[in-house]
Nucleic acid binder design. Structure first.
Lengths: 233, 233
DNA sequence: CAATACCGAGAGCAGTGCTCTTGACAGTTG
DNA sequence: CAACTGTCAAGAGCACTGCTCTCGGTATTG
């Protein structure tokens, strides 16, 4: 009885699954063209030839649909980055970092609205539920893996002092990584991560207008310098 | 006739100015509590005891009102940062950088929605007009000033190589700074700037949840390390 | 004083998220 | 087979949004 009563319910259940997927797909299309704020349940319903109220059978609210899109976006980005990173030789830490960061940027440039959804200003009135936490960590886990390998192979930069308050502040990070990683390396990792997010977001938000003519070239150099700071270049 | 015809027109004109200011003020209150997407012209009008259509006599569209709020935000942040920076001894480059960055963060933490308005994901469908360009540069001008002083007093880090493509890419920056500043220093300045924006935005967007317990301590250290990288520590 | 420009109020249009009710259908049970 | 139950799409409706247009009154100007 572990198996769900399968045969008879499947007809309905399958139709439901399919329609749910169609709604999400249509919503993502709207998202990529109009952004999160322009995502309209009614418009999605119209595209699917159904009436707006029918959509509420599948998603109890607009926010619920947004949550699905957010999780999908995290997973899409995470998978893209993981594949890029996995294609690099394990010992090439610099290459792994560059592959990861470049994959993230390419993904973001292709889907600016989905990037904004997960790393941009939060949608007002929307509270990210717990289910989004795990997929959100996929990219950072890659970075952590690189740092761990850097530490275990002894490729660490000469550490700068870390104030006591900062040592205490990064306590939550310690729960997710092996013991022994120095504070300094964690700080460098966090700063590389915020550099990555910062540069990508600035590019997408148009902050480099009248500043850079070739954002890609700048990005590569910036990430290269991050690698130097991390001691893996 | 350079003076505007003053006396008789003033009664109406003054009332208009005052009401315009009241609308902006009310709009900013709504902005700080609900965010840009929740800014409703009708709600503003309601608060002011007038009918929604009357507001259109003062702002031809919601976007026009948003533009005013954006310019005000840029100027508010710019002024705050300028004052903080001006209070530091000119020769203390490290102090000037720390004062500027700390002022920016404090301002952002107090007004997260206004920060999101100017540095967050752009409001969909809204195109920032030319008038926003000048006030937007006030904070970066401070940073540029520090870098120029660093260069003229010889406090520059040992430069890393800068690829040709990046040299070409930063051409627009060169139009706003004196000749002679090395490419490497410009790159370092840009990266410090994106580090600053990245860390602040990440904190406001909740990206440090379950990562840092004391974001202020981390921020100070991160900015200190930026100063080291800039060679002004 | 008369003409003009300005202004607030109101109605109205098209759109939004969301709720509630209604009628049709499918699957299960007596 | 008939009755029941759960699910579904559809429609009407509420309160809200940005925005436009018209109307009548008032302040400013020639």
């Amino acid at each position: 009885m572990v198996q769900p009563t399968s045969a008879p319910r499947n007809a309905r259940a399958r139709a439901r699954e399919e329609l749910t997927r169609e709604i999400v797909e249509t919503a993502r299309i709207h998202l990529t063209s109009d952004g999160a704020a322009g995502l309209s349940l009614r418009a999605v319903a119209r595209d699917l030839g159904m009436v707006s109220s029918a959509v509420y059978r599948y998603f109890p609210s607009r926010d619920e649909l947004l949550t699905t899109l957010i999780i999908d976006a995290y997973n899409s980005l995470g998978e893209t980055a993981e594949q890029a990173e996995a294609a690099v030789k394990r010992t090439d830490l610099n290459g792994r970092w560059l592959a990861t960061s470049r994959a993230a940027r390419n993904w973001a440039v292709e889907r600016p609205h989905e990037w904004a959804l997960i790393y941009g200003s939060p949608v007002p009135g929307y509270q990210a539920p717990q289910e989004t936490v795990v997929p959100a960590t996929r990219v950072t886990s890659l970075l952590i893996g690189i740092l761990i390998d850097a530490y275990t192979t002894g490729q660490t930069p000469t550490p700068l002092p870390v104030p006591r308050a900062v040592h205490a502040s990064i306590a939550p990070v310690r729960d997710d990584i092996p013991q022994g990683i120095p504070d300094d390396l964690i700080i460098r990792g966090l700063m590389a991560w915020s550099q990555l997010l910062g540069v990508i977001s600035m590019e997408l938000n148009g902050q480099f207008h009248n500043v850079l003519t070739d954002t890609d070239a700048y990005f590569q150099t910036a990430m290269h310098r991050c690698a130097i700071d991390l001691g893996i270049s």
